[in-house]
Design a protein around this nucleic acid. Structure first.
Lengths: 201, 201
DNA sequence: CCTACCGATCGGTAGG
DNA sequence: CCTACCGATCGGTAGG
């Protein structure tokens, strides 16, 4: 197919529409959960009909997975996985908590859908299973590197510390959401990590 | 009304039915969340029709609140609130995690519904708001008592430690559920608390 | 991208 | 406790 100005406009429009759908879907999945969100509501917020939405994403399930995948891509890039290491990586995680405190929608999305997805038949079950495994593994690697750098307090087990840190982040998000954002997630996280280190965070 | 054998049997039967409904509702709310659970499914599992269920609990919302309240009553009694104090109370919380590892349904119920209830319009929103506040307050009191007993490591702030411990318990439950019960919740909790104490846990 | 529709399911009520 | 029903809403499809 020849690339004419019309074609380019058409593709750009389609991409913009897809992005708008993903944004609105993220917000509603966060507010109402996957089960509680309806395609009609998402579509209306985008100014289209719900069969119009299904033209871009064939099923509700595909839409959810696209939303989750996009958020992960953005956050993984922001975390600079593979670049930062050791204590730097741990600090980066507290920075992420600080950033998340300005993005209620994203925090809602992951908190609510992760809880839903503990059911084995939930469409995002496998996604979150993998996500937790890799999150804990990445964090354990950071603790191991911190130990190699002599920054880890003796008696701190990297594997246990990794499970703790990921659990703490998730639990704090729930508290932050239910307490109407009065919990200082980043500061509570930093206090936890500081107690594990022999160096400044 | 005179207490005849017939009355007693009638009341006992009603109580037994109510208990069965609460048990089945707890299980399904945990599996599917509040929004995802239907009164018809709960009723069928009890061997009655869904209008039959609504004879015992007037609305779905009332049923949810009754389920949550009953679990809290049982757990508060088990925790022996007001009896155990200081380090004993912290140990009691790790014992609760150990007990919960044998009660997947209850863990699911609180994890899934708490996440749902972060929405301000969720029927259990106020319930969880209060629940978190009192849980954190009770835990902070235990840390303060531990400090008075000279059992708390210097530099550990009781208010922060309380937020951490509650968040850790909630986050570990999610990990435990999604990892198909391979996470050792109680042991990870104990490692966290030990690092804060100058005495044995 | 639309309108119009499908069958299924929801919480709750009427009336017994 | 039941049957029978209400209006609303759901995800998805037909057909254009």
């Amino acid at each position: 197919m020849r690339v004419t100005p019309e074609n380019r406009r058409g593709y750009a429009k389609g991409r913009a529409r897809r992005t708008e759908i993903l944004d609105q879907a993220m917000a509603l999945f966060g507010e109402a959960g996957y089960r509680g969100a309806s395609l009609r509501t998402i579509a209306t917020r985008c100014g289209i009909s719900h069969p119009g939405l299904l033209h871009h994403f064939p099923t509700k399930e595909a839409l959810l997975l696209a939303v989750l995948q996009r958020r992960d891509d953005v956050d993984d890039e922001w975390l600079a996985l593979g670049v930062t290491r050791g204590v730097d990586h741990l600090r980066r995680l507290t920075d992420l908590a600080e950033l998340n405190a300005k993005r209620r929608g994203i925090v809602e999305l992951f908190s609510v859908v992760a809880a839903e997805a503990t059911s084995p038949d939930h469409p995002a079950h496998a996604y979150f299973e993998t996500r937790y495994r890799t999150s804990v593994a990445n964090t354990e690697r950071a603790y191991l590197q911190a130990r190699d750098d002599g920054a880890l307090r003796p008696g701190t087990d990297p594997a246990t510390a990794a499970q703790q840190l990921i659990a703490l982040m998730d639990g704090l998000q729930i508290q932050w959401l239910i307490s109407d954002c009065t919990t200082d997630m980043a500061e509570v996280l930093r206090a936890h990590i500081r107690a594990q280190l022999t160096v400044e965070l």
